[in-house]
Each structure stands twice: as structure tokens, then as C-alpha cells.
Amino acid sequence: DAVILYLARAPVVTFYTPERLDLLLACSALFAVTFLRPRRAALLASLLLLFVLAVRGIPAAGAGGGLLRLYFLSVGQGDAALVGLPDGKWMLVDGGGRASETKARVGSRLLLPALRRLGVRRIDYLVLSHEHPDHLQGILYLAGNFEVGEFWESGIHSNSREYRQLKWVLAARGIPVRVLCAALPPFAAGGALLEPLWPATSQRPASGDANDSSLVFRLRHGKGSVLFAGDLTADAERQLLARGVGLESSLLKVAHHGSRHSSTDPFLEAVSPRVAVISAGYQNPFHLPALSTVARLEKRGIRVYRTDLDGSVQAVCGAEGGWRVSTPWGHFN
């Protein structure tokens, strides 16, 4: 028992999640050293197996690898985008959820298993675009049950029960809160450059629609960039365009799950993405994405990926700017 208690104090490795092959290699090494004869052969065999195991762990230890990795998670009718930053840090933009889900189980049943499967043990930057449950519920769960470095938001407060609970959890756990809006200059985050674009200030929009106050930002890595558009509506898109800021991005997280009230032609013209990703639930009751929105995207030659049809979408970008998009993970819902 004393030995077990002593070993339990050892630091936990968080950058490496063993796969089945790794467990097989470890068990084989134990078998070799225990049962093989002569002893020299047993030692050589076990050392060889342990060397292979160590080599397999090297890529995980150097997580990031100078690449920007995006995982648009299939978590039902909501938004949840995991970002692997070039220096190995992790960012999560929104966490999915459902307004009709009173127990807010998206975090424990969908989001947490997805993070574990992807080998994520800490979220360095937990980002909430706005207060609606289909973005907030998973964020609330992680804030209370996961290792989090910082929390970022627009600073536009809400009186909703879940938002107030989130702020209480953040304060109770001592998680720093950072407010982002268009008044802030671009800043470095995890080896990438983050440009806050919207809202213009941390004041509630005149429309009263929380979608119009969505946190919108562009993340740049070398020649590649991704624009996270939250649930921005057409009216807010017009106001953003009127500010005259550059929006051009090679990948677009389509606003508001592909609603017909977003992603207007002038906005798409300004962004000019080569790839677009729509987060939506399979056969959702809102009939999203709208056929008209998909048509506007495809008319411009934009490659469109949808979590309702493709499952979780992975996009990887090096400093040269090209996106490699695939769908190897399937659905987490």
C-alpha cells in the first residue's frame, strides 16, 4: 500500500492518451520480461517493445507541431469547435447544448467523450460566443468539471439561469475571465494570431437579439485563417461590414447553423472562404441548414461540410495556408 500511495503522488501525463496498440505493446513487454527465457532474450524483447512504445508517444509529446487543427464536433443541434493551436494549446469555441434539454447533458454525454477520444486533457482557452443554450451548456459543464486555463467572452451579460450559473462556477474555481470585442487589437494565442471583430463594444445590441452580439473573431496561422461567425444575423453582418474591417478568411464557420437569415451574399463576398463548415443536428426540427444558404455557398464554389451529414469535421492548416479537410471521427451524438 505504501508503494501505491507513493506512486500516486507522481505527476499525471496529460499530453498522451494510449491507444489499444500501446496497451498491447506494454502488456507484451511485461509478458516478455516475466515469462521468456533465457533472461537476456527476455530483456532484449522487452526493451524493443518499450522503445516502440516510446516512439509512438513522441508525436503526442510534441502536440501542435506548428499546425492549426480544427475539429467541428458533431454534438447535435449546437456549436462546438475544438481548436488545436500550433504550440500545442487547446481552445474550445462553444460547447453545444439544447434549449429543451433541462438537465444539460451535452457536456457529460457528448462533449467530454469527444475530448477524451481526441486526447484533450486541458482546455487552455474556453470561449463562449453568446448566451444561447446550444452554445453555452457544454461550456458550463466543462467550466465545472474540466481543467480550464482562461474563459473568454464578449462581456455582454445575460440574466439567464445557465449564464449566471456559469459565471458563478468560473468565480468559484478562480478561472480568469477575458472580455473580447472589436476595440481590442489582435493578440497572440497559442502560436496563432487572434483578431476580435465583433461586437463593436460590450453593450447589448439595440435589437435585443443575443445572436447579434455573438463574439466573432478571426484566427490566423501563416497564410491560413478561420473566421468564427457565432450566430451572427444579416443585420449584424451589415453592421460588421460597415466598419470596413478585413474579413477575408480561407475557412468559415458558417453563422447560425446555416440559417437563411445569415451568410448574406455581401458577407460571403467579404470573407471569400474556400471551405465552409456548418454545425447542425441531423434532421433537426429547425430544418437547418437552409437550402438557400447552402446554395449561396455552393454558388461561389465553396466546399461545404456539414456535421449533420458528415459527422465531426477535421481541418488542418500549416503555415503555407492550405486546408486539409476530412471526416474521420463520425458523430459524437
Rank of each mutant, 00 (worst) to 15 (best):
L70I: 09
L73E: 07
L73A: 07
S74W: 00
A80Y: 05
A80P: 06
A81W: 05
L82K: 11
V83K: 09
L85G: 09
P86W: 04
P86Y: 04
K89L: 09
L92W: 07
D94R: 07
D94V: 13
G95E: 05
G96N: 11
S100M: 12
T102F: 13
A104Y: 08
R105V: 15
S108H: 06
L112H: 08
P113Q: 05
R116A: 06
R117T: 10
R117Q: 13
R117H: 14
G119N: 07
V120W: 10
V120E: 06
R121A: 15
D124V: 07
D124E: 09
Y125F: 13
S129N: 05
H130I: 01
H130T: 03
E131M: 02
L136Y: 06
L136D: 04
Q137N: 04
Q137D: 14
Y141N: 04
A143Y: 05
A143C: 09
N145Q: 13
F146L: 03
E147H: 05
E147R: 12
E147M: 11
G149V: 10
E150I: 00
E150T: 04
W152R: 05
W152K: 01
I156Q: 08
N159R: 15
N159F: 11
S160Y: 12
R164K: 15
Q165K: 15
V169T: 15
L170W: 08
I175G: 09
V179C: 03
